[in-house]
Amino acid sequence: MAEMRTKMVHALDVQLRSSTRRDFLQLVAMGGMGVLLPAAIAGCSSDPVSPTVKALFNFGTDRGALNLAFGYAQFMADFYARVTSNVFIGMTANETVQIATISGHKGAQRDALQNLITSGRITDALLFNFASVDFSSRANVMGAAQTFEDLGVAALNGAANTVTDATNVILLGKVVSVWARHAAVIRDLNDQAAIAANTAGASRNSFAASADAEGLDPATVTSSVFSALQPYFRTTLTSSGS
């Protein structure tokens, strides 16, 4: 059991990154295995999905980047649908409004991209695995949301140089700036929650803390994006041509 717990802490650490690790450790300390068990079972069970369920993103044409945007929009729309149907404890009125808006945007973007990639489109039904996210926990959900939002921006920034058509590069830009706004909103909501909790040093200044010293947001290669995303997907994500 100790080994399993270690494994779970490690798995969650990897998946949710250290923004929520402390919360998770506190959860372990306070709740013990009663809290851990559902996640432990999900995390330790073998993958029920056939390994043949794959999505190939081919960056040899502009479809690669548009499919990445489409796939990520599917992922985020599914995530926020779960957030809005499993409202975490203590969700404020402002959070409710902002999350509903973001959820609507992701769905609208997913649907539009589905129609705009008329051929060579990846599956419309990517399969996800959110077993590691405790949707009743603000820290868990909002920590995951921040990680996902930042990664989505970095993913599209990183795939931008595979696009060769003017209309497509504009389309990618139209989507990614809205995602950057989403990321800033989630970060600001986390700041506001920290201020409300009288957390030492809390301030509404992390909206663009993703940027480096030159004021540039990350641009992440697809292989790294997929490595980070794969734990949340039952579909195997693969790429070529980049």
Binding site: N157, G158, G173, S177, A183, F207, A208, D217, P218
Partner: peptide, 19 residues
Amino acid sequence: AYLTTAFQLHSVEARHAAE
């Protein structure tokens, strides 16, 4: 090569605008 740089600047401006 500056296309990527422009995307990286672009998303930071969007974060500013939202805040």
